[in-house]
Every structure is written in C-alpha cells, then in structure tokens.
Amino acid sequence: MFASERRKKICQMLMDYKSVDVSRLSKLFNISTVTIRKDLELLESEGILTRTHGGAILNDSFPQQEHTPDAVEDMCNPEESLIATIASHFIQDDEFIFLGTGSICTQISRILPEKKNLTIVTNNISAAIHLKKNPELNVIIASGTFGVYNGYYGVMDAFYTGFLDNMYFDKVFIAVDGISLNTGYSVDNSNLCLTYQNVCAKTGEVIVCAESSKFSRNSFARIGAPDLATKIITAEAIPEEYSDYFYSHNIPVYHSYRLDDIQAD
C-alpha cells in the first residue's frame, strides 16, 4: 500500500472515530509503529490532527467539510490516477457500462465527460456527480441503501432491489481490495460483493482495476475466481505467478500507460 493511500485511510478513520491508536494502526496496516508515527506527524503538520500519547485525535479547529468524501477523493495517489487513465481508454462512445465504487472508479468518472452517448449505471454517487457535468452522458444510479465505502459515497446493496435484474452491460469496471490466485477477487464489504457478483454475471467483459498492493491479498468477501476478469488494469509490474496465470488464461494485463497498445487492443 502506498503511503498516501495509508494516510488517506487514517484520515477516514479520524473522520469516523475522532481518534486513532498507533498500535492498532500498526497492526491494521502491518507496518512498524515508527512508520505510523511519521504518518501522524505529517498529518499533524497539515493541521488535521493532534498527536497524543499512543495515538492522535482529530482537530476541532480543522473544518469538517474538509473531511467529507469529496476531500478524501482529492487525495487520490498517482497509481490510482494512472489506472483510471488506462481504464478510460477502454470506454467507447455509445456503450452501456457499469462503473463501481471507490477511488479508482471515481477518478475514471473525472475523465469520462469527454465521451458521448454513453449510458453509465453506477452505484458510485461521487462518480455520478462528476459524470453529470456532461449532458451527453446518460447516468443511472443503482437503487439501494446510501452509504460511505472507503471514503466514497455509494450504494452497496443494489442487488436487493432487483434493479439490475434486466440489464446487460457492454463492460463492467470494478476496483477490488484483494486479488489471490487461490480465492480470486475480493472486497471489504459483503453487500458490495453481492452487487459486483450480480453485474459481472450480466456482461461479457469484466475489467478489474487494482493497485499493485492488492495482489497476493485476500479481503473479506469473495467476488469470483481469478478467471472472472477479461482484463486487469494496474500501474506496476505484478508478481510473476500472476503474470503466468493471466497469460495462460488469455487475460491481458495493462500495467503501464501505452496508448497505442490500448487503442490497438
């Protein structure tokens, strides 16, 4: 996990709980307490928190609107931005697509306003707000329970309402929290997992977006097997065993921004 991504998650925890504990953060991110203290020191220098003995508390003087999902969105790291840029080139005019929730998919939505005559179904409220800046786009928000997931507004349980039952997508774009050759793709939210299982069954092209830190990692809820994806988009070279698996299953992996290769695909 990139340091910027880790600090973003620490900020989100401060928004939710008003305080954080160094030892718990160290165990959560599987890094040393020294590294966590450096993160807290940096966030303190930005006026976000005040360090305490063994942890930190959210500053009352720090404007609360700065802690909304909109502010977290602006903390997107370079790897996420690169993945979103690559992904955007697989979206064509006149398509019917599903766009998932989270940081990468929200960044994709910032690029999409250049497209025309797209129909985009999304459970990502933050993305929908960006997409509607272009009147050429037809944006449909999945129905369900509104909430916040990893700092982003979204609908996690669209599968419950039957909203997706009669839809078929040209392409489905999802960002995942874990990729494992043993268990496949996974996310941290069980309702979101069921929504993704639903939409992935309604398309011939599942495009999985993930930072390099998500490989060889299992998360809480399993979406499907490793061969569920038809394309993988990341920003760096992935472990060799993953490259071998995807190659043997004819699943292309894009981990650098080569526009000519993408357009020729």
Results as ranks from 00 to 15, higher is better:
residue 104 I to G: 01
residue 34 V to K: 09
residue 203 T to M: 00
residue 140 I to S: 06
residue 37 R to E: 15
residue 223 I to Y: 00
residue 150 N to C: 09
residue 219 S to G: 02
residue 93 D to M: 06
residue 210 A to M: 04
residue 146 F to D: 14
residue 261 D to L: 14
residue 84 A to S: 13
residue 131 L to C: 09
residue 19 S to R: 14
residue 65 Q to C: 05
residue 163 F to D: 13
residue 33 T to P: 00
residue 126 S to Y: 02
residue 8 K to V: 01
residue 239 P to T: 07
residue 211 E to V: 10
residue 213 S to Y: 15
residue 45 S to E: 15
residue 230 T to G: 12
residue 88 S to G: 04
residue 121 V to I: 15
residue 105 C to L: 04
residue 139 V to K: 09
residue 75 M to H: 06
residue 227 D to S: 13
residue 28 L to W: 07
residue 233 I to E: 05
residue 23 S to G: 03
residue 23 S to T: 12
residue 232 I to C: 06
residue 178 G to K: 02
residue 21 D to K: 11
residue 114 E to M: 09
residue 211 E to G: 14
residue 153 Y to L: 14
residue 117 N to Q: 12
residue 112 L to T: 08
residue 101 T to P: 00
residue 158 A to D: 05
residue 228 L to K: 00
residue 140 I to H: 12
residue 51 R to C: 15
residue 231 K to D: 04
residue 148 V to N: 09
residue 131 L to T: 06
residue 20 V to S: 06
residue 153 Y to M: 14
residue 184 G to R: 04
residue 25 L to E: 06
residue 100 G to T: 02
residue 39 D to A: 07
residue 151 G to F: 07
residue 164 L to Q: 01
residue 155 V to K: 01
residue 1 M to N: 11
residue 3 A to C: 05
residue 95 E to C: 03
residue 187 V to D: 06
residue 230 T to R: 12
residue 90 F to R: 03
residue 170 D to P: 01
residue 64 Q to C: 05
residue 236 E to T: 05
residue 185 Y to M: 05
residue 253 V to C: 08
residue 198 N to I: 00
residue 174 I to Y: 01
residue 86 I to G: 04
residue 255 H to A: 12
residue 19 S to T: 11
residue 61 S to V: 07
residue 148 V to W: 04
residue 120 I to D: 08
residue 225 A to K: 13
residue 51 R to K: 15
residue 138 N to G: 04
residue 40 L to N: 06
residue 96 F to Y: 11
residue 127 A to T: 09
residue 63 P to C: 11
residue 154 G to N: 09
residue 52 T to A: 06
residue 244 D to F: 08
residue 143 S to L: 14
residue 226 P to T: 07
residue 88 S to P: 00
residue 125 I to T: 12
residue 20 V to F: 07
residue 79 E to S: 13
residue 119 T to C: 09
residue 215 F to P: 03
residue 230 T to W: 04
residue 60 D to S: 14
residue 37 R to S: 09
residue 119 T to R: 10
residue 240 E to P: 00
residue 185 Y to H: 04
residue 143 S to A: 15
residue 89 H to I: 02
residue 240 E to I: 12
residue 34 V to G: 03
residue 24 R to S: 10
residue 69 P to M: 10
residue 246 F to H: 06
residue 30 N to A: 12
residue 20 V to K: 03
residue 61 S to P: 03
residue 251 I to V: 13
residue 39 D to F: 05
